[in-house]
Amino acid sequence: MNEELTEEEKEALKHIALKLETFEKHRGNLIPILQMVQNNLAYLPSEALKIVAQHLGIIESEVYGVATFYNQFRFHPPGKYPVKVCLGTACHVKAGDIILENFERKLEISDGETTPDREFSIERVACVGCCALAPVAIIDETVHGHMAPSKVEGLILRIKLQEEIEEREKKKNEPGQS
């Protein structure tokens, strides 16, 4: 939860502070407020938890306690390429947890976190509906079936290379355009 806020997020936070005023200062409003914040920011940074606690007049740790209980709230910004590793029944039987572990090790973050450059984030999901392909991982929107630990590094590398190529193309085109 120690990521720096981007400029856009700081703006969004100001917007959220204004929107908070439309909510009655009642502790029963905590969850609707947290949902509103996440709708605006895509996650709950500690700065946001602070202003929510101030608005409702409750202690910050209580907001944190409630927010961490629910799966729907996240505390790290979603990465540009979200990695979702399936741990549903079939994938669990086919050792999906080892796939998860491999992603965690290669990206040096754990489940629920985001890399510091905000490129990748890892999430565990429960069944994506293609159990015949177990174990399954979804990167961005692409489903990768029959995952194996040895495929993990290649997938990450491929995305990174793709990014580099795109960037180079962009640079090549830029001087031509001007």
């Binding site: 500690s46 938890l49 202690i59 910050e60 740790s61 209580e62 944190y64 306690g65 961490t68 209980f69």
Partner: peptide, 20 residues
């Protein structure tokens, strides 16, 4: 109000003081 709180869920549940 309590500085201490339950955080997370299931086996991961902890007593936390969060950002105190």
């Amino acid at each position: 109000e309590s500085v201490l709180t339950f955080a997370r869920r299931g086996f991961d549940t902890i007593i936390s003081t969060y950002s105190a």
